[in-house]
Structure formats: structure tokens, C-alpha cells
Design a protein around this nucleic acid. Structure first.
Length: 818
DNA sequence: GAGTGACCTGACTTT
DNA sequence: CAGGTCACTC
């Protein structure tokens, strides 16, 4: 590497001038902070652990700290390494630091996600791990395809040993910074005893392809730091201050990376909240935050505990829930806010009913007919555990015409047509991108099926060529049959021609960026720049046109086709923001989020994971049912640890709400296209009852249209002894029983409903041997009880555990219309 | 080589 | 319920 520091003099004059201007501003960013936040900002030297609970002004403190570092002259903007997990967080931080310092701080080149920072570093030092600096970053799709090839090459039955699983294993290893040779012990036995072997083969293949996957970005940098002391020392010197956001989400590789970099000066400030660690499944180690003080002796630990976001009931409900977790660092969140509505809890007959009710609530809140000031849809959100739960809401909202937006749903760049188009671009930019070649060689159909492709593969492998060159060779030999040969020739020539155009347009960027020493000046921040030359946009259009790709969709008669064409247009449009195709590809590889700045008033639907870091005045948390939330899979795979993570997820969900939080569950839900009766979530038991309102079922009992009945509930509170909402309270409540028995009947029979409600209450105690009837499972016999559930052996459906409310005595089965 | 239908399997969270 | 794979046919 270079002897002298390559970053010398990278600070521009304008930045110095800017610092001067900020000086005059007399550090206004400190004014709004409370004592703890201020301490976190002003404790600049040495290790600092900031334990910041939900809504305690963590980002304010973090950005103020950066501003303070710059303001006091401790560090230039480009000497600060600040890492986040999401692009959104990075963007927000950049913007807020800029605001603190009076606007246009241009150079925070090292503020970004772990991955984006690592890409920059790895491009500089790629050769140390056998890569070229213009390596491609594979998406999961490519990764899977690659693994499939390796698995079948290793003569392993792809059915029994799916590539997805191997991808998961490899990902896990990389998260723990394990290179193939470091995978040890029984883990070598993973994947039919071939796990580590395939992992090694995969890494080899990646190197040959000059490609990396997401995990490699971190792993390669850790390897480089560990094996090249000079490189490490250089960055240790350069990054004088290190800040880490969401520290509880760091995995082992990220942890090692940080520790290596911080080892010299130990000026590292980590911000996190152990109660919000929700990425264990992705390799995050809560342990990292728990052992910070051991890793950095003498660390200042600062707790931010004053919550500025939620009402006292919401905060208390969340706090009460999370105390069920063990091994917490422990924080006492408090707020000055008083009053507000309790957290609302309501059960529904099934998922559709739940969606219907929430839809009505959203509209009522929007109109202000609940006796509340109107709440815009933008201020309301529905947070679900798993993305497939969104569908019920989308269906319902489409029906009633309620505008919504799905955040983090099927993402733009993951769509078929976008990936295809991107593969074309990739191939044109880097003709030896074999994975891209495979993807588009026969899309649209060019009569080049498996056989032809195999011949290309063989030709390429035997001659050590890329697939594109292998194809060229075959054409030159003239061994392919007429039609296929002509099509292939056209394809190859097109790619070659387009590639030439790029090379001529910008010879420097088309080859390699290894020589760039301007990473700190960032001519194109994240590849974005005011584009002056739009030739790449026209080129992209022509690629899609002339390749026949657009035509393929134009001829497609399926209903999705027009949408796909729209998406392609949008893709081309997005290119305008970049100054070349390469920059765009880089951007897309790392930034898989599509935050179109929408201005319309819409309710947001997203997963709980996607909601972290966000807040809304009104939040709905549907689907609180055992198996769904907490998710069965988490519990099966990770036991108590999994359950605790689910609980933290619940905590994150509740703490997103500022004013009104509504938890709901359904008694029946379609799972795998099959109806299943659901148990309410055990987390419901853990809510402190004083802060929860159990709502009576809506609509059925004369509550009327104005939603007036909703807040009249609260019968759950009076019966609980131990300060918890017992699930049993919900079932034993008159409202729930009526709901259970009544809702299996048409709603338009109020008299019948009431009669049945009374009946159901009277009959809720079954004895062993009683014959019962269930709406879905049919007839069965009561075998016993388990807690508040009945064990029923159904004639057809077998043994089930369910609540008494779901069955009726067999004698009354005739009354049940279905 | 491409198109079609039967079958199977798997289903959560993501930089 | 959905997407993917396989076998079969044209």
C-alpha cells in the first residue's frame, strides 16, 4: 500500500470555511439535549456505550456528537467513521449532522451502512483477497443459482439438500467471520457432511467470477485487517473517532471489524438498546452489547431513559412486557407525558374480520368520528410479524378504497423484470459476468436451450474463458446449428457493441477504480451525481429495446405485463440520477430499498422489523397469536432465545406508537390455505393490565355505526389479580364468548345471536366424553382439558387443542350454519 | 426447444 | 395458496 496517508489534504477549503460558520453558531445543537444526552455528546475521548431506550432521542445525541467532534476540531468530517445498519438511518444522520453544522457539510464519506463502507474499503484492497477492484456484488438470486450448480456438481440430491439451506449456512458462517478453513467441529458435518467443502468451493467460484456476496463484504475486510497489519494501522490512524448505531444488531464479523479498527485509540461510541435486538436470526449477537465494558475497560456507560415519544400507558405496557425477558442490561424508561389512551386489545373471529375492523378504525380515526381530532392516514401504521399477513389488509383496503402503502414489501429491485434488465446492464458493463450471461442468454427466448447453453459452458471452461467469450468461440467455429447460431451471434455482437460504447464514454470507470484516491471527496456520493451526460440512459433504453426484452413483455398477454413495462420505464428513469451505469449497479447492489417520496395520504403497512426506528401516532398490531407471533419457527429453532427475541419484537412494535396502540388477534386464520384455530399470543398475558383496555367486540351488539362502542369496554381489567392481562380474561369476558358463538352466524340475526350468546356461556364447561362440533373440524369427542383449552379428538381431523368457545355441543350442531 | 399440466413442497424477519 | 420442478407433448 501507499506509504503516505492517501487521505492527506482531502479536506476541502469549503469545509474549513463551513466549520468557521458553524463556530459562530455557538453549538446550538447542544441546547435541546437533556443532561444524559449532553454527557453522551461531550464525552468524546475513550470508549462510550450509550444505552438508549426506544424514543429517548438516540439519533439526536448521535448526530449532535458528530457535530460536536467536528465543531470542536477533534476530527475532520472525513476522519469520522460512523456506521449504521440501514441506508435510511445513514441518510437521516447525514442530513441531521448537516443541519447542526449549518447545511452543506459535504464530506462525511465514511458515514454509511456497514456494507457500503466495506465496499469502499474492499475496492481499494481487493487484490489482497484475490479479487479485482471492480468485483460484482451478487444478489441472493445469483447466490442461489451458483450454489445449485455446485450442489449438483457435487452429486448431491438437490431435493433433499436445497441450495437455500446451504446459503443460510454459509451466511451464518460469514456472519461469524468464519472462512471455510475455520469452520470446525460438528459444523463441518452440516449439509450432508459436505457443508464446509461446498463452502470452500463456493468461495473459489466467487473468486473466479470476481464476485462477492453480502457476507463477504465484511468477511474479506476482517481477513485483510487480520493479515495486513500495515493496512489496518493506516485506517486505525485515519478513523480517529468511530460511532456505531444499533450496536445490539452487530454480528461477530462486524464486531471484529469494529474492534480491530478501534484498538488503537479506542475512541469508539456504540449506541444501542438490548431490548430492541431483533436480528439474532441474521447473526446479530446481543452479547456484543452486553460485553462492551469488558472489551473496552473504563468505558463510560450512559443511559438515555427519558422517553419523548409515547404516552405513559403505551410506555408502561411495553416496559411491562419486556420485563419477562432475562439477561437484560436493564433500563427504566420514563416519560413526563401523562394521560392518553390505554393500549387497546381486541379479539376477532378471523383474519378477515380483523382486517375489516382495522379498516373501519382507520377511517374513523381519519375522520375524527371517534371523538378524536382527525388523524391523517400517514400518521397511522399497521405492523405485522410476517409479510404474508399484509395481504389480508391489502385485499380489504382495495375493497373499501382506503389508500395504503406497503413498506419493504416485494421490492422494486427484486422483481423479475428488473433483475433481468439489471443482468443485461451488468453483462454490458462487465462482459465476463457469467451469472448475468446465464440469466439473459435465453431471455427473451432465442432458441438457446439447455443443450446450447451446455456447449457454451463446456467451451468456456475448457478454454478458461468467460461464457460470453466461450459463445464467441463457438460462433467462430461454426458448430452450432443454423437458427441458434444466428441468434447467438446477434446477442454476442450486441453485447460487444454496447460494451464498446461504455468504454468509449468513460474509459477510466469502465476498467477499474483501484487507482482512485478520491474516495474521500466522493465525486459521486453513493454513485449519485448531478448527471451532465445522459448517454447512459439512452444506452440503457437501447439495450432493453434492441435485445428484444421490451418486445417480449409487449407480446406477453398476462395481466402483469403492462406493470412490468412500467417498471422498466421507471428503472430507466432512475438511471438519470447517476452519471453512469456502473454507479447505478453499485447503488442497486447495496441499496435495496425503494423509498419513493410519496406525498399522498396513505396508511403504512410493514413488518415489525421494517418499523424499527420509525414512529407513528397510531399503530395497529394485528395477529398476536401463538405460532404466528411469537412465531413457531423462532421458538422451534432457537427456543427460549427465540421467544425472547420475539418478545423484543413485540416491544419494538408497541414502542412505535405515540398516542394510540391497538393489539389484536383472531380466533381463526388461514394458514397454508387451510383454516386453523389460533391461540392468542402468550405476550398478551404479559401486558400489565392497568394499561390495557380490553374492547368489547364491535358492531354486533348495538354499538352502531359511529364506532361509539369501542371505548366502552375495559371489562378485562377488573378481574385480573396479578397485574397482567390473562388470556383467560379475554375468553371469560362476556364479550369474547358472545363473539365466539355469535360470529359463526350471520350478523344479521341479532335475536338469534343473543340467544346463542347466552347458550354459549352456559355450555362452556364440557366434560370428557362430550360430543362436540367445530365449524371446520366437524364432530369430535372431548378427551380432556389442558389449561384453558379442550383436547378434542375429531372424527376426521384428529386430535386438536382448542378453546371451548370454538365448539358447540354436538346436539346443537344443526344450528350452526356454514 | 418450448409449452403445458400435474405434483410437491414450503411458508418470517434482511444488509 | 404459490412457486418451482418434472414429465410429457407438440
Amino acid at each position: 500500500m501507499e506509504d503516505d496517508d492517501p487521505y492527506e489534504g482531502a479536506v476541502s477549503l469549503s469545509q474549513r470555511a463551513m466549520a468557521g460558520a458553524a463556530q459562530a453558531r455557538a453549538a446550538a445543537y447542544l441546547d435541546k439535549l437533556n443532561a444524559e444526552q449532553r454527557q453522551a455528546v461531550e464525552t468524546l475521548d475513550g470508549p462510550v456505550l450509550m444505552l438508549a431506550g426506544a424514543g429517548t432521542g438516540k439519533t439526536s445525541a448521535l448526530t449532535a456528537r458528530i457535530a460536536h467532534l467536528i465543531h470542536t476540531g477533534r476530527a475532520q468530517p472525513n476522519e469520522i467513521l460512523a456506521v449504521t445498519f440501514t441506508n435510511k438511518a445513514a441518510r437521516e444522520m447525514k442530513e441531521r449532522v448537516g443541519r447542526h453544522l449549518g447545511g452543506a457539510i459535504e464530506g462525511m464519506p465514511w458515514l454509511g451502512t456497514f456494507h457500503s463502507v466495506c465496499v469502499k474499503l474492499l475496492r481499494r484492497h481487493a487484490e489482497l483477497v484475490g479479487l479485482k477492484s471492480n468485483f460484482t456484488i451478487l444478489d441472493t438470486d445469483d447466490q442461489i443459482r451458483l450454489l445449485k450448480q455446485l450442489i449438483s456438481a457435487a452429486n448431491i440430491d438437490e431435493k433433499r439438500w436445497p441450495a437455500r439451506q446451504l446459503a443460510g449456512l454459509i451466511d451464518g458462517w460469514k456472519n461469524r467471520a468464519l472462512t471455510p478453513e475455520k469452520v470446525s467441529g460438528r459444523e463441518t458435518a452440516a449439509f450432508n457432511n459436505r457443508g464446509s467443502e461446498l463452502y470452500a468451493a463456493y468461495q473459489d467460484r466467487l473468486k473466479t467470477l470476481n464476485a462477492v456476496d453480502f457476507g463477504d463484504l465484511l468477511l474479506h475486510m476482517v481477513t485483510i485487517f487480520q493479515t495486513h497489519a500495515d493496512v489496518l494501522a493506516q485506517y486505525q490512524r485515519w478513523f480517529r473517532y468511530i460511532l456505531v448505531d444499533e450496536y445490539q444488531d452487530t454480528n461477530v464479523a462486524q464486531y471484529m471489524w469494529l474492534r480491530l479498527l478501534a484498538q488503537g485509540h479506542k475512541n469508539i461510541c456504540c449506541v444501542g438498546d438490548d431490548d430492541q435486538s431483533i436480528y439474532g436470526w441474521r447473526g446479530a449477537e446481543v452479547g456484543n452489547i452486553l460485553k462492551f465494558e469488558k472489551d473496552f475497560p473504563g468505558a463510560a456507560v450512559i443511559r438515555l431513559e427519558q422517553n419523548y415519544r409515547s404516552t405513559e400507558h403505551i410506555l408502561a405496557a411495553a416496559s411491562g412486557l419486556i420485563t419477562a425477558n432475562e439477561g437484560r442490561l436493564g433500563k427504566e424508561l420514563w416519560t413526563e407525558a401523562r394521560g392518553g389512551e390505554k393500549v387497546r386489545l381486541i379479539g376477532h373471529w378471523d383474519g378477515e374480520e380483523e382486517a375489516r375492523w382495522i379498516g373501519e378504525e382507520l377511517e374513523a380515526l381519519q375522520r375524527g368520528t371517534r371523538g378524536n381530532p382527525p388523524v391523517s392516514l400517514n400518521d397511522q401504521a399497521i405492523l405485522v410479524r410476517a409479510s404474508h399477513q399484509m395481504r389480508a389488509f391489502e385485499d380489504r383496503f382495495l375493497t373499501i378504497g382506503l389508500p395504503y402503502r406497503v413498506i419493504g414489501g416485494p421490492r422494486f429491485y427484486e422483481r423479475l423484470e428488473i433483475r433481468d434488465a439489471m443482468a443485461y446492464f451488468r453483462l454490458v458493463v462487465s462482459p465476463d459476468d457469467d451469472l448475468a450471461f446465464e440469466r439473459v442468454i435465453n431471455t427473451p427466448k432465442r432458441g438457446l436451450g439447455d443443450k446450447a447453453q451446455q456447449r457454451i459452458q463446456v467451451a468456456a471452461r475448457e478454454n478458461g474463458l468467460s461464457l460470453l467469450d466461450g459463445a464467441r468461440m463457438l460462433i467462430a467455429e461454426g458448430t452450432l446449428s443454423g437458427k441458434a447460431a444466428g441468434q447467438l451471434r446477434l446477442f454476442v455482437e450486441n453485447i460487444g457493441r454496447w460494451h464498446e460504447e461504455i468504454v468509449q464514454a468513460s474509459p477510466a470507470t469502465a476498467t477499474t477504480r483501484a487507482e482512485d484516491d478520491d474516495l474521500l471527496i466522493e465525486p459521486a456520493e453513493d454513485g449519485v451525481a448531478p448527471a451532465n451526460d445522459q448517454s447512459h440512459v439512452r444506452l440503457a433504453e437501447r439495450i432493453l429495446e434492441e435485445s428484444g426484452y421490451v418486445e417480449m413483455w409487449q407480446n406477453d398477454k398476462t395481466p402483469e405485463a403492462p406493470g412490468r413495462l412500467e417498471n422498466l420505464k421507471e428503472l430507466v428513469k432512475a438511471l438519470e440520477q447517476f452519471d453512469n451505469l456502473q454507479g447505478f449497479l453499485e447503488h442497486v447492489a447495496l441499496i435495496m430499498d425503494n423509498d419513493k417520496s410519496e406525498t399522498e395520504d396513505k396508511v403504512s403497512i410493514m413488518t415489525l422489523h421494517a418499523a424499527k426506528g420509525l414512529e407513528f401516532p397510531v399503530v395497529f398490531l394485528p395477529g398476536w397469536e401463538d405460532g404466528l407471533f411469537p412465531s413457531q419457527r423462532s421458538m422451534d429453532e432457537s427456543g427460549l432465545k427465540g421467544l425472547e427475541e420475539e418478545r423484543r419484537l413485540a416491544y419494538v412494535g408497541i414502542t412505535r406508537a405515540e398516542e394510540l396502540c391497538t393489539i389484536s388477534f383472531a380466533g381463526n386464520r388461514r394458514v397454508y390455505g387451510q383454516w386453523q384455530s389460533q391461540m392468542p399470543s402468550r405476550f398478551i398475558d404479559e401486558l400489565p393490565v392497568r394499561h390495557v383496555d380490553v374492547l368489547t367486540p364491535p358492531g354486533l351488539y348495538g354499538g352502531g355505526m359511529n364506532g361509539g362502542g369501542f371505548s366502552a369496554g375495559g371489562f378485562g381489567g377488573s378481574t385480573a389479580m396479578d397485574d397482567r392481562v390473562a388470556r383467560a380474561d379475554v375468553y371469560n369476558s362476556p364479550g369474547w364468548k358472545r363473539l365466539q358463538s355469535a360470529q359463526s352466524r350471520p350478523v344479521s340475526q341479532p335475536r338469534e345471536v343473543r340467544r346463542m350468546a347466552v347458550d354459549a356461556q352456559g355450555e362452556s364447561d364440557y366434560e370428557i366424553g362430550d360430543r362436540v362440533f367445530h365449524k371446520k373440524f366437524g364432530y369430535g369427542e372431548v378427551m380432556g382439558t389442558e389449561g384453558d383449552k379442550l383436547i378434542v379428538e375429531f372424527d376426521k381431523a384428529g386430535e386438536k387443542r382448542l378453546l371451548a368457545g370454538f365448539v358447540v355441543p354436538a346436539a346443537e350442531a344443526d344450528d350452526v350454519p356454514f
